[in-house]
Design a binder for these strands. Structure first.
Lengths: 224, 224
DNA sequence: CTTCCACGATGAGAATGCGCATCCGGCCCC
DNA sequence: GGGGCCGGATGCGCATTCTCATCGTGGAAG
């Protein structure tokens, strides 16, 4: 939990550092843009608190530079400029929050907690099986990095099989999953059909579908 | 891009809705907690704007309830309470931002843009895809540096597709992002219509919208 | 070991209905 | 009042989907 504070007014900077250190963060204090850049070159931070008016330049340039470089670090602007246009401009330039002096240290801490909390915790729900990757959210299938086009039925079947990988799924079960409501009219052969289609599209992958006669189907990888 | 606004003061709520709709968001307005919960039960939102003082209870309870349920939707508190302790409490309870009335609509919009782009995992504002550049803040689209005029709906759709680039978005999902409840009577092929219009305007660009029959649409660049 | 049967695999073809284009009317905002 | 934005309706083309029919194969019993 390391935070960079860029602030030229000594007493403000020191007060912020003292407060954040008491809250358990490791803090580096820079009073000029150049010093901030030196810190950033050798250290990565959970979060950056940035004053806009600095003796050797404008904080906005640092902000833009970082974003252009692709840095995703949350940045909180802390400044005396209270004009709405300045706020909008900074936020649109890539800042994540904007606090106007004078401010309350408790609020600063709370807002930093929010930024750090947000920055963590976005997991990708991708399922992997051998060289087969399936992302249910994106509805995308890849074999060894190459995308494989799938139709809707194929996709739902793959979803069923992969979310229960390693288990044998009865044909009735798969049938329910595929044709839950319109089942009355569709023949019993349909499941086998889509199993065949899936197998064909998954040829060349290390994932495969085993047949267990009289029981159902099971998905697994070749080796393992 | 659908936003839920929970606000009991009619003129404030309507002003916010008008402003956000002009910016291309689909908005649902709830003036009571109960209504908000009903909306949330049947619809998912990109973001929630929440007033704390409501006729049938305290907004904080909704906030806590959502977080306990594990909802990760960004929430912006919009209230007249200006005490620091109230802000800290709300932020620690799971709110992502806190704006005190009276506020400037431009700042609200800017802060919502921040929350939404953060939620999507992007740090800065401008999105690029091949030679197509989209700036949600400026509501501007460029193909190879040349500006392309877009209508509001087209822009909203492009925003949806680009912020989820590489993923297949179902027609229902796009529909929900495009239209709010009051416009519920629009036909089902409205989405196809705007897809067609977008494609026409994006002809000549390396950005492309693929159709995945039965699944939805997916945005990508020609090469890759 | 052999034989037979039932279950599963596979290919070809037909119909459903999805998605696209187009034209058009209506509405809102200027 | 008018121009652009918005969304309705229709007809057509075709991918997807499912049926049908045939062939392959595993397994158990004699």
């Amino acid at each position: 939990m390391r935070i960079l504070i860029v602030e030229d007014t000594a007493d403000v900077g020191e007060a912020v550092v003292a407060s954040l250190e008491r809250a358990g963060y490791a803090c580096d204090l820079a009073d000029r843009l150049q010093m901030a850049e030196e810190f950033l070159a050798v250290q990565s931070y959970e979060c950056i608190v940035l004053d806009l008016s600095l003796p050797d330049g404008d904080g906005r340039s640092l902000l833009r530079q970082l974003r252009k470089r692709g840095a995703g670090t949350p940045i909180l602007i802390l400044t005396a400029e209270f004009e709405v246009t300045a706020r909008v401009e900074a936020l649109d330039a890539g800042a994540d929050d904007y606090l106007v002096k004078p401010f309350d240290l408790r609020e600063l801490e709370a807002r930093l907690r929010v930024l750090i909390r947000r920055d963590k915790g976005q997991a990708s729900g991708v399922m992997q099986l051998g060289d087969l990757a399936f992302d249910p959210a994106a509805q995308s299938v890849q074999v060894g990095g190459a995308p494989v086009p799938m139709t809707r039925r194929e996709m739902t079947l793959l979803n069923l099989m992969m979310s229960q990988r390693g288990r044998i799924l009865s044909k009735e079960r798969l049938f329910e999953g595929l044709f839950s409501f319109e089942r009355a009219e569709v023949g019993t052969n349909a499941v086998e059909l889509y199993i065949a289609r899936l197998r064909k599209k998954l040829a060349g992958s290390s994932a495969r579908i085993e047949t267990h006669r009289g029981l159902g189907y099971r998905m697994d990888a070749d080796d393992a």
